[in-house]
Design a protein around this nucleic acid. Sequence first.
DNA 1: ACAAAAGTGTTCCGAGTACACCCATGC
DNA 2: GCATGGGTGTACTCGGAACACTTTTGT
Lengths: 230, 230
Amino acid sequence: MKVKAKKNKKPHDLKFAVIASDVCLFTVVSGELKVLLTPVNRPPYFSNMLGLPGGLVHPAETAEEAALRIAEKKGGIDLSDQYVEQLYTFSRLDRDPRGRVVAVAYLVLVPPHLARNNEELGARWVGIKHVPHLAYDHDEILRAARERLRTKLGYTNAAYSLLPSEFTMGELQGLYECVLGRTFDKRNFRKKIAGLGIVKSTGKKRTQGASRPAELFRFAKRSLQVVEIV
Amino acid sequence: MKVKAKKNKKPHDLKFAVIASDVCLFTVVSGELKVLLTPVNRPPYFSNMLGLPGGLVHPAETAEEAALRIAEKKGGIDLSDQYVEQLYTFSRLDRDPRGRVVAVAYLVLVPPHLARNNEELGARWVGIKHVPHLAYDHDEILRAARERLRTKLGYTNAAYSLLPSEFTMGELQGLYECVLGRTFDKRNFRKKIAGLGIVKSTGKKRTQGASRPAELFRFAKRSLQVVEIV
DNA sequence: ACAAAAGTGTTCCGAGTACACCCATGC
DNA sequence: GCATGGGTGTACTCGGAACACTTTTGT
């Protein structure tokens, strides 16, 4: 989370904790899981660090509305069709050294064609293997988000939110392999997906580079369905 | 949740939402799932209703510490060895008609021998089928808690927190049948549990009424383990 | 003796896994 | 013609599900 220090309403002025939303946005680009990070520069606690996008929840919005507003503002991304889920609420007393801030963390999945760096704000998509130590307790939030993403892909069709509307079986399989950190047999994978009926063929094909054209599929439903995938 | 209206610090006096913890305590007694409810009487919004135990999070405690404090105070139960998990954070604007209160809800499992009504406070264990319409958004919290309990029993050993330290296979099976709302074949159930190694025999037997004595088991670990049960 | 819950094995089926070759295209 | 990723079927294995009778006790 992050707290605006404007006015004279800092967290420690208050009798109670204040509420913030922190957002962990994931995307998968060319076989690599990436997370959106923003600069954090709040000496003396955090100097030139990175952190997840976050901010205070306004009085007239829910925590989820705040998360969407923050993600769109910091990432410049329209999240109206994306998968958003509440992750966990972090309330350790010392998680923000400036005062008592309780953060409701959200997980958001973004398809690669919408994942653009916002140079103006310094927001950058960073490969999960190159993420440095983050500000606040955001290392912990990121760990929890990755774990949730893994399990969620395993038992739902949430992958629809990490792919463009049309995609090949190879892309879908690559997504699973990248997030779950294992490989699948091509034939078994296709059999499984076909049997679940979560995707349907478009009839179209896409040819890419020097190889046979691949059939394009579409998710049957672009809303969360519980289905045993792995 | 519930808000203390003492002093002059009501929620709507504040610039930001205040944070409360609401607790959903479950137990299973003689084949029935029960939840701990407390009286809510806050005219003109809620008159002579019931709700989940709840209260504000103090500045010097985490949301989970608040949940435990509230549960022990309202239920008179020592929760040091019980299973406690954060459920979800509820932040609808109108969830508390008196002001902006964000509630972090917790799920707590209690074995039947610790589930006593606290007459002094009016706290009562109510069978899940006899729960009336609850105050605030507690109907929604209870729904989410039941759902979580179901799924959690299905893939972990969390049942250890709903049984006394020694129990029979019949009791364990009855617990699962009651929470999951289905029956299991006795032989398959015992085979499955034995194969997982989550319980060990004590060698002792317990005879109860006019029937063959049952072997007593004990959970191998009284801490959360992930194991595929159903 | 009988009621009541405990305890115990085998068969069947479906899902998961392992595995190798041909196809359509661009260069 | 060759390199690249796309596309396809079969055999085996293991875990889940169905299923009925005997045992031990109290009354």
